[in-house]
């Protein structure tokens, strides 16, 4: 059996991932996170009488804090596994990835451990987020002046 034939054999016997089901779960959970965040924003606006923009900033911080706290307490990874991409794509995912890496390397020292590894997973998001923001800003300026 050559390598191509082996690949065919493996592909034939490998169960397919249920992508549409995963996508629906991610859509619903991600949407739920958005809905909760919106609720927090509305409540903050009401209680503290601040503008919508300011309320969103506070909401973002609260969601990050919650995700980090849940990760540190230790049950958020189970939620992430079950929610597929639903909790990874919102800000919760970013906070969770940073927090889980930090927890992993806390024994390796502040510099060589946490400092060097905290953005292990989130580093790509930051780097390519900044690069794409730069290009989108240029496009924005060219089109809208």
């Amino acid at each position: 059996m050559n390598k191509d034939e082996y690949k065919k054999l493996v592909d034939g016997l490998t169960p397919k991932e249920n992508k549409s089901k995963n996508a629906i779960i991610a859509f619903l959970v991600g949407g739920l996170v958005g809905l909760l965040a919106e609720l927090i924003a509305v409540l903050i606006m009401k209680w503290f009488g601040i503008s919508r923009i300011e309320a969103y900033q506070w909401t973002c911080l609260i969601v990050i804090l919650l995700a980090c706290a849940f990760t540190a307490i230790g049950f958020f990874d189970n939620w992430v596994t079950k929610a597929k991409a639903g909790l990874i794509l919102p800000t919760t995912g970013f906070a969770h990835s940073v927090m889980s890496a930090a927890l992993d390397y806390k024994r390796d020292g502040f510099i060589t451990g946490i400092g060097a590894n905290v953005f292990k997973l989130a580093g790509s998001v930051i780097l390519y987020g900044i690069i794409s923001a730069f290009f989108f800003a240029i496009i924005g300026v060219v089109i809208y002046g």
């Binding site: 939620w79 596994t81 991409a85 889980s100 992993d104």
Partner: peptide
């Protein structure tokens, strides 16, 4: 992945 990350896994 990091232990607490809990990335969804393939079958």
């Amino acid at each position: 992945f990091p232990i607490e990350y809990g990335a969804p896994k393939a079958k």
